[in-house]
Amino acid sequence: MPTLALEDVSVSFPIYHGGSRSLKKSLVFRGSGGQLATDANDRIMVEALRHVTLQTEVGDRVALIGSNGAGKTTLLRVAAGIYEPISGAVRTHGRISPMFDISLGIDGEISGYDNILMRGLILGLSPDDIESRMADIVAFTELGDYLDLPVRTYSSGMVTRLTFAVATCFQPEILLMDEWIMAGDAAFLEKAQHRIEGFVEKASTLVLASHNADILKRWCNKGIFMQQGEVKFTGDVDGALEAYAAAVVSSPHPVH
């Protein structure tokens, strides 16, 4: 059963640098006739994704490989519905959750409990759903009564615990990750790794963009190699890593 399908997806970003982003230039150029108008409309476009077609099935663990600027993050964001494609279509089957910035929505002024609740609401869960998982989250953070205090009073280690618990508490079916998540706190590290592993295993589909070949090999069974916004290779993870290695031979970008 397909879980995530991109069909001939293209995405390009206009670069609104300096003046061209201001209304002044748009108006001034519009008023000053043809010659300069082409100048104003001749925006630099970055083609982040070019005719990308791919499909994932239940059980797929997809490694997304490519050098910086190859379009990995854009592809993940398109899959998450953050950028709607300029052309083509994105079909998803199942609850999809991006895990790009795990501290998203963490608000220092509200209590730990409220932060957990807010995260659940952002992910579109009902208060009942959130309530039913609260005990598990609370146990994981080991923060006890601190959860009633505003997050700004926490030590940085405590914030990490909370952030991590909050980020991993609501299980998506399709999990999109931009780089593997690391938890800093040494004492917490093992527990955190254990949790993130369980979290990833439970997802029916994983798409993981990373530069770390060890992590990709350990977690992924399929691989996609991207270059300049195009999918150059689709297959198993080793094949994708080889394709990447072959492509970077002539370029200065490091493999890891």
Partner: peptide, 18 residues
């Protein structure tokens, strides 16, 4: 897991360009 409830209401979404 406990997310079984959410799982039943399979969310199918299509985002098309254009």
């Amino acid at each position: 897991n406990k997310a079984g409830k959410a799982r039943n209401q399979q969310s199918v979404s299509v985002i098309e360009g254009g």
